[in-house]
Nucleic acid binder design. Structure first.
Lengths: 231, 231
DNA sequence: ACCTGAACACCGTTCAAGT
DNA sequence: ACCTGAACACCGTTCAAGT
């Protein structure tokens, strides 16, 4: 009866950088990154917006801290993974584990890519990936190329260019629309029709992100292994 | 004496959607996407901010239009490319051509990834990529996987996770800093030292984006060719 | 030490009004 | 048809002032 709803609103426990960042992540997870304003964040913590500036220096600092928290979450998980003598399997498991964390924080890829510098947690993550590649017999030079080839996949995400949930081009696209597009983009239409024929359940919301992520990841890992053998 | 500086300021030629989008691209190219505000854009055109809303519906519409203009620029260039019987070489040239356009518009990758839906120019581009893959002997199913594996590389860009120009971790990082980091991230430091030893000119601003882009691209193209042969 | 009220300089956007 | 002045609801942020 006394406490209204969230435990976060209690004014007993004082604010701290950690509480601010935790609330920020919660807001972004729930309402998207666009909903994260300093005023909204303060409200979530039962405080005035100006109070936040005692614990964080500005909004950029909040975004930096949110990313560090997410990557730290990843580091804890991947550090607990059991070693695997096959570098490909070891790295694959690491990356897919990291991916799970990003799936819980859909705003994180966009924010991460908007940050310029490396923070300690990110540096730690990449160092551990490098360790894996070295143990797998990679030179530093090839490992370096490999990190670039993986790109954001090394951290467990790809920025999907198109939202399959978009109404305009997915889900309930009917035959009439397809026919209309067929003249100008015949291959795209043919591809969608063939795939939706093979799997009638998914008309145009046809991309299984997990499957596609693993396909691309394995393609790169296999390619790197071949490069390593050749070197 | 009469015309102040830019030809864009002349009030003779009336505003239009095209002029608004052109000015928006110019502003973003010059000052970065963060500098693009409706007021700044209006100022560039010698007009009040409210006038813009007669030609575009809102800022989202401006961003959509900017992307469409950039991708149209790409489509014109790649359509003029001479055909190549080797699908890998053909696609490689296409993608590297598209990349040149993105290098001129550094804001475009970020904006593109923030858009949800596909627009006609983007759909056209992907259809032409699909056409190339089909001509190279790909099934629609494998071509679809291939598009996902390429990700934004298919359009000619990768979102670099770290800005090599960042002062904190690049350029003039001295030996003392490296030594300090060596204990916690030994492989990263070893890699940077080895690479900077091989190429002393580039201490920590060591990543040649073009080389790395092509390495990753070729890795994926080769992997897709192998998948195609196996299928 | 920690929080806040009032205020500032900015946003995107609307709408009735001007020409 | 095309542009604008005034205004609204929102931002992030500062700073002197409160407890």
């Amino acid at each position: 009866m006394t406490a209204k709803t969230a435990a976060t609103r209690s004014p007993k426990v004082p604010l701290s950088r950690e509480r601010v960042l935790g609330a920020a992540i919660a807001v972004a997870d729930t309402g998207g990154i666009a909903s994260l304003t300093m005023r909204r964040l303060a409200q979530e913590l039962g405080v005035e917006a100006m109070s936040l500036y005692y614990h964080v220096s500005n909004k950029e600092d909040v975004l930096d801290g949110m990313i560090d928290a997410v990557v730290t979450e990843i580091n804890v998980l991947v550090d607990a993974l059991e070693p695997n003598p096959d570098w490909r399997l070891a790295l694959r498991e690491r990356i897919l584990t990291a991916r799970q964390v990003f799936l819980r924080h859909p705003w994180a890829p966009g924010v991460l890519e908007s940050r310029t510098g490396m923070s300690p947690p990110i540096v730690l993550y990449f160092d551990s990936v490098l360790e894996l590649l070295r143990a797998g017999g990679f030179s530093y030079d090839l490992a370096h190329h490999g990190l670039h080839a993986l790109g954001s996949r090394a951290l467990g995400f790809t920025q999907e260019l198109f939202d399959p949930g978009d109404d305009d081009y997915s889900g309930d696209a009917d035959a009439a629309l397809l026919e209309q597009m067929a003249e100008q983009v015949p291959h795209l239409v043919a591809m969608m029709m063939e795939i939706s024929h093979d799997d009638p359940e998914s008309t145009l919301g046809w991309c299984d992100d997990q499957v596609e992520f693993e396909f691309g990841l394995d393609l790169i890992l296999d390619g790197l292994e071949r490069s390593r053998e050749r070197a």
